[in-house]
Design a protein around this nucleic acid. Structure first.
Length: 575
DNA sequence: GCCGTTTTCGGCCCGACTGTTTTCAGTCG
């Protein structure tokens, strides 16, 4: 079993215990362990080998023993026991809005309902309204939530998909009368690779007007809930959006609250309690009941004696401790990036000419751009032969002459790491290029040892500078290749090979936790858009967001370096 | 079930909204 499968087991255990009505803190303990496993940047089996399971936050003796059991037997006896006691199909009901553990238990025990299908039938027959505490409206609400659940393709959207919607909503809402401040919050602000819903926070003197305006916008399909300070809607796209309207004096605490993550907020509130302060979206309450308002988000952290923590770090991954110790890293920013090292043109599968890509990059203020089209064997993408590379070089020089100073164009190639483990060009061709990116595109389903060895071969080739989108995943569509990341990261450090954070929102590969582990081990990273169109160069911020989630400092990202420094480093690689 | 600037026991974040209720339970973020 891998980390994620074990996390899913613990999540199911938590849900079983919740339905059983066990002490909520036992439930939370299993849930926390599940989260910890999902967040882990390393294979938990390796951590077990090292004897460090209990160093994982949220893992104590009991849960460590269960992890060992799952590693050794591929099974969890405790889960099996619970599944024998409680119908496992009940758990699916919990994914329906408005159905939580209490009602699931009630439906099962009082009405003999064993699955979501049976729940829907009972609701249609009007049998739910008979149950205690239930009524016609609740029955209707559950029925429509079941419909919505069945039509829902996925419960999370790609960050890139949600981004444009969020910008558009923010822009229009900022113009509503009375709105003084407005900001996007939630997992979008934290740059999580997927977002469950959009969260928007406004500081306004006219909350009613803002909430009304929002809930009647054309893209709103239905209102899920609406009160005096917040409204929650579902858009026709299926995306859910929550909008909070707070007085300006509460804007900072409201933004902090809505940004999350939930785990970060829980930790921060515990931290506040130890100082005798109760933190909520309205600000701090002292033990005497006095309210301390926080107009700016910085005020929340400042009141606790902490520096402001960047949203991307707020995942309860040690950021509060680091803030306490004054050890928060100075994170990379978009404006630190000086160049793009991975971009395509019409020479292979790009949609724009070298000249168009170059002027778009110059427009964005980039100092250098590497044209790195695909190599010969990637037929579907129109990969270039060695001879074509020479012709392309001529064009790059011509475009450089036309565009003049201000941006330097370099020639690279995104070279296939072949299924057999070799590279798609011989050393002579590789040596003629300014920069070589080696990537996996094919045979991504190979077993771990074979796939890992392929990447290691590329890393050991002294002509390779960068490994592109390491795992080859497409978020939600294609699973990552099964790789021994720890070995790969260590080899990259040993051989001075740079690992890419691919900024394309479909990829974000390396992902945040893996990038953080790579940095901890001493790897250098590059943030590349892999642009196939001039507009894709604008994906940079997604890569930067991912790097910030990995606590990356500018100097650890090679395309913050000047071209002179980068060239020097690249040439040292081939000595 | 976890964990320690209050602790190896006794705590464990906080409030809005809804629908069912006559003061609250359930769900959600």
């Amino acid at each position: 079993m891998n980390n994620r499968e074990m996390a899913d087991k613990f999540e199911a255990v938590a849900q079983f215990l919740e339905i059983k009505g066990e002490a909520i803190y036992r439930v939370l303990a299993y849930r926390k362990a599940a989260e910890a496993l999902r967040d882990l940047s390393r294979d938990v089996a390796v951590i077990r080998e090292e004897g460090n399971l209990e160093d994982i936050p949220g893992v104590g003796k009991a849960i460590a023993a269960k992890i060992e059991e799952m590693i050794d037997s591929g099974n969890l006896g405790y889960y099996e026991e619970l599944a024998a006691e409680i119908p496992p199909d009940l758990l699916e009901m919990l994914a329906v809005d408005g159905v939580g553990p209490k009602r699931a238990a009630q439906f099962w025990q009082e009405a003999g309902i064993l699955s979501l299908t049976e729940l829907e039938a009972a609701a249609r027959e009007g049998r739910l309204r008979e149950l205690s505490g239930m009524g016609v409206r609740l029955e209707q609400k559950i029925l429509s939530s079941i419909e919505a659940y069945k039509h829902r393709q996925t419960d999370r959207f790609l960050l890139g998909q949600a981004w444009d919607t969020a910008q558009s909503l923010e822009e229009r809402l900022s113009k509503v009368e009375g709105v003084e401040q407005i900001e996007l919050a939630g997992s979008l602000r934290r740059y999580r690779e997927t977002v469950g819903d959009l969260d928007i926070v406004a500081g306004t003197g006219a909350p009613g007007l803002l909430l009304d305006t929002f809930s009647t916008m054309p893209e709103v399909e239905r209102i899920l809930g609406k009160g005096d300070t917040k409204v929650s809607v579902e858009l026709y796209s299926g995306l859910k959006v929550q909008l909070w309207a707070h007085p300006r004096e509460h804007f900072g605490s409201a933004l902090q609250y809505a940004t999350g993550s939930q785990a970060h907020n829980v930790r921060l509130r515990e931290f506040a309690l130890r100082q005798g302060l109760s933190l909520s979206e309205h600000g701090f309450k002292t033990e005497e009941g006095e309210l301390i308002e926080c107009p700016r988000e910085e005020d929340v952290y400042c009141e606790l004696g902490l520096p402001w923590i960047p949203p991307e770090m707020r995942e309860d991954r040690g950021e509060i401790e680091a803030a306490q110790e004054g050890a928060l890293p100075e994170l990379i920013r978009v404006e630190d990036l000086l160049g793009e090292l991975h971009a395509h043109s019409t020479w292979s599968d790009g949609k724009a000419s070298i000249a168009e890509m170059a002027s778009a990059a110059k427009e964005l203020g980039m100092k250098y751009l590497v044209i790195s089209d695909h190599s010969q064997s990637l037929g579907v993408a129109g990969g270039l032969t060695a001879a074509e590379l020479k012709q392309q070089k001529t064009e790059i020089l011509e475009v450089q002459a036309e565009i003049g100073s201000g941006i330097e164009l370099l020639q690279g190639s995104e070279v296939e790491i072949l299924a057999g483990g070799g590279l798609d060009f011989d050393d002579e061709v590789l040596g003629s290029l300014d920069i070589v990116i080696a990537s996996l595109h094919t045979a991504l389903q190979q077993d771990r040892e074979t796939a890992t060895q392929r990447v290691l071969n590329a890393i050991e080739n002294s002509f390779v500078h960068i490994i592109g989108h390491l795992t080859g995943r497409l978020i939600g569509k294609r699973d990552p290749a099964d790789l021994d990341l720890e070995r790969i990261f260590m080899a990259a450090v040993e051989h001075n090979v740079i690992l890419e954070i691919n900024a394309h929102p479909d990829r974000l590969d390396l992902k945040d936790t893996h990038a953080r582990r790579a940095l901890d081990l001493g790897c250098l990273l590059a943030i590349n858009t892999d642009a196939h169109h001039p507009s894709h160069l604008g994906f940079r911020h997604f890569g930067v967001g991912t790097a910030r989630r990995a606590w990356a400092r500018p100097e650890q990202i090679v395309n913050t370096w000047s071209l002179a420094s980068l060239r020097e480093w690249l040439s040292s690689r081939r000595l």
